[in-house]
Every structure is written in C-alpha cells, then in structure tokens.
Design a binder for these strands. Structure first.
Lengths: 211, 211
DNA sequence: AAAAAGCTGTTACAAAAATTACAGACAACA
DNA sequence: TGTTGTCTGTAATTTTTGTAACAGCTTTTT
C-alpha cells in the first residue's frame, strides 16, 4: 500500500533501489486537517516526504501575528525541515495540515547517507532547497510589491489551484490571519471582488469564479 | 597572497587539502563598489566565495521596483548562485557590490565533486542554504510585521553593523529604493528619527547615534 | 561666474490600511 | 423555542503610506 503511493509520487525521481530503502527505513504517518506537523520552536529529527494531501507553512512573530508563507503538495518535502534537522536547530516556522495528509518520515542519518549514495537523492534535496528559496522570493514579492486586494485575490486563486476545487471553506477571520491583516479589511475587499464578479460569497465559504 | 586570505576566512572551516584545491581551481576576482556581480535574468556557472568587502542581494519586479533582500559578508557565499548554477537557471536576483570586494569563483563541476569528497564542504554548502533561508525569513518578517519607520531604522542599524562604521553614505533616494518606498517618505521618517535623537542628518550622509 | 543638476525639507492632498463599533444573519445547543 | 456564540456587512474615524509640487541648498558642469 505505502510502497505503491511512494512509487506514484516519487517513482519518476528515484531508482527502484532507493524507493525500497525509503519504504524500509521511513515511518508512515497519517494526519488530519488542522493538525500541526511542526510547531514553532520545536526540534525535528526526521525529514518528511508528502504522499497525499497538502500542508501550509506559516511564520509567526512575537506578538502572535501570523503569515502564510506557502503550501507544500505531494511529491514535495519541506526545506525548513532540512534546515532544522541538519543544523539541529529549533523550527523557525509552523507547519499545519490543510488537506488530510499522508507522509513518510526519513531519519536524518539516512538522508545524509543517501546524499552521496544516490545522485537522484542529492538532486532532489538541492532541488527542494531551490524550490523553497523561490517560494520565499514569491512571498516577498507579494509583500513588497502588491496591495492587499491583489494579495487577497492571489491567496484565493492559489488555494483553488492547490485543492483543485473552486470552493474555499474559510472564514474571513482565517484568511485575515493568513495575510496578517484584519477581518474588516478582508470582508471589505472580498465584497469588492464579489461586486467585480470574480467571486461569490457564502457563510464560511467562497466560490471563486475567475482564476 | 590569495591563499592567505583564503586561509584567514575559510581556514577554520576547511581542511588544508580543500583550501589548496580551491586556490588551484578558483578564479580570483576584484570588484569595486557599485559593480554588479550578478544581473537579474543572467546565467552563472561559478560559485563565489567572498574574501573581502560586502555585497547586497536585491530583488526586482517587472515595473523596475527594487527591494533589498540582505547583505553578504566575507566568509559567506550566495545561496542564489547555488540555485542558479546547480539548476542551470536564470538569476532571480541581482547582486551589487557595497564595499569593494575580493572573491574566488569556483566552477560548478568542482563544487559538486567536493560535496562527497569533503564533509566540511558539504556542511558549508548546506549551512549556506540554511543561513539564506533564515535571512529570507527575516526579510519577510520586516515586510509583514514592521511599519516603514521600523524598517528604515533597521536598515540603518543593519548597515552600521555591516560596514563597521556609524556613518552611512547614502542619499534618501537610494535608501528609498532599497526599502521600495518613496524619497519623500524616507526624508520624513529620517527627520523624525533625527528629532528622536537616534540619528544626525547631513548631505549624502547619515550619522547613526543609537544602534 | 553662470547655469544645470542633484539633494533635502516641507506642504498639501489622495489612497490604502487599521481600528472601533455595532447590527443583522445564521448555527449550535440547552 | 429561546439563548448564545460565531460570522458577515457596514459606517465612521485615525493612522500610515504614496503622490505632486516647489523652494532653498549644494555640487558639478559649462
């Protein structure tokens, strides 16, 4: 069962031998929406490979402020976990399950061993770092160069693409947390988007019409 | 001459043998303030090790907008160069010399070879990625959680620490570019900081009193 | 020396975002 | 069924940021 999902998601990346090693040493784990995979300030000694579902990476400041950094989908791993376990440091971010997730946890020791043993693994690890740096750049772009109405619309369309459905189930308050703004601002701008015909508002739900 | 500076900056990180290899295959390069080490959209096939001076990493948007991401000091390398040369991708950022710099350029092939040959090199490369991810996080923090006056003051104090002098030689316009805001806003907030006794303003110069 | 170009301070105004407050709608539940 | 808590829409106000315009300097160029 697990090896099959491993193959589906990583088979085109890794050789048979590596897939088998992963299945052998990895812990399989299931997580429900809302559960925390990684807490701010915690330590981690495993590297997660996502098989199913999606996860959001969130930054927090001292005053309880939050900001969504980006989403992780199946076939991905989290570069901050790499940072965290290779440097043996506290986590700088928190990771929360968005859609029910299945994942495999790889012990750090193995992960380091494979770096030289499997070229494909090395490429995967570096590629992960590169993707994360790019995601961070895009986050910075939205913060530095976009106004709140654009950021809000981007949040909605990104989520639509992520979950593969045009219906987003979030309260205005939840969205406000993700964008680090106030609920009033989100409600106001959502109403504007509705008047422009881009979305349709319901209680706890938003239907995205254009994306 | 060069090997000496190499030893000074990297001797406590790398073994003798690796230092010698670096000196052998690396190109030595000197750059003046204002020169571009890396242009937006360009390709790069070498990884730079900074021996002297400092460099700033800047993000640009389509409309010519700019934003300072962070500074690089001697003993550092640039993770975006790694991204760039290992993935053979266009540069997402531009790198400009802040203080006259000396650096050594390592060909990608060597850099990859050393990953498995020298444990210390592998650690250095991963540590570089980790440091850059952290810097990016800090940049995101300032954008998401701080107001412009705080960002401006942070810019000034960061630069004081970087160059090791309390005198910053920049016009208000240059600072405005770095923070992606307007000159008027910078002038206004600088005046406020001066009234609070934290800085003293001159033409083309700012003296930072508290940091 | 005169002219041009660049830098700073300031004013007035517009736009964007944050804050406070409150009312109506809906859902959960005793 | 009535109460309570949550979610949404809206209005009024303040703070922050962006824009335009201009005067007074200093530095550079002619």
């Amino acid at each position: 069962m697990v090896p099959q999902k491993l193959k589906d998601n990583y088979g085109f990346l890794f050789e048979e031998e590596l897939i088998e090693e992963i299945a052998e040493v990895g812990f399989y784990q299931c997580m429900k929406r809302g559960e925390k995979l990684l807490e701010y300030g915690s330590y981690i000694k495993n590297m997660p490979l996502l098989l199913e579902g999606s996860i959001k990476i969130v930054r927090e400041d001292e005053d309880g402020g939050e900001l969504l950094l980006y989403f992780i989908e199946r076939g991905d791993t989290c570069a901050f976990s790499l940072t965290c376990c290779m440097g043996n440091k506290k986590s700088e971010i928190k990771a929360v399950v968005v859609e029910d997730a299945e994942l495999i946890l790889i012990p750090v020791a193995k992960m380091e061993e494979w770096l030289c043993k499997y070229q494909t693994w090395k490429n995967f690890v570096f590629e992960s770092y590169n993707i994360r740096l790019e995601e961070m750049l895009m986050t910075i772009d939205t913060l530095a160069f976009m106004k709140m109405d654009e950021r809000l619309y981007k949040f909605l369309t990104d989520k639509v693409k992520l979950i593969g459905s045009t219906t987003i189930t979030n309260t205005h308050q939840e969205i406000a947390y993700n964008l680090h703004t106030s609920r009033v601002v989100v409600s106001r701008l959502l109403k504007k988007l509705e008047k422009e015909g881009k979305i349709k508002l319901f209680r706890n739900k938003i239907e995205v019409l254009e994306f």
